[in-house]
Design a binder for these strands. Sequence first.
DNA 1: AATTTGACGCAGC
DNA 2: AGCTGCGCCAAAT
Length: 112
Amino acid sequence: MTNQNPSYIDSVVDVVRLIPAGRVTNYGAIADFLALGSARMIGWALNKSGINDPSIPAHRVLNRKGQLTGRLAFKDPDYMERTLTKEGIPIKDNQVQNFELYYWHPEELLDQ
DNA sequence: AATTTGACGCAGC
DNA sequence: AGCTGCGCCAAAT
């Protein structure tokens, strides 16, 4: 392999893969869980690795308001809304309705 | 090498 | 309760 991604990108991808279907989380939660110190790095890391890999459910990562801020980064701008809707999450005007109801935090893994 | 930008979040106003 | 500014860290120019 000519290029190797930094370890924190791999960590972000690993956490995103653990998001259950029908649930969503935000950048800050992952950044806090991984102690990256900056939520900006989450979206950046996913754009670097996630978009290129369809096996990563990057569509379940939103901003703190529950808005689909990353939809333009996808090949199809409607991919996030379409996929989340298919998973049973109501979206209106690029924003998840009842965001708190579907909100998922990585700490829930420790409670299992 | 310095500046700008980005799938963000929070405090202050 | 919404708008603005600042902090955050890495990459691109």
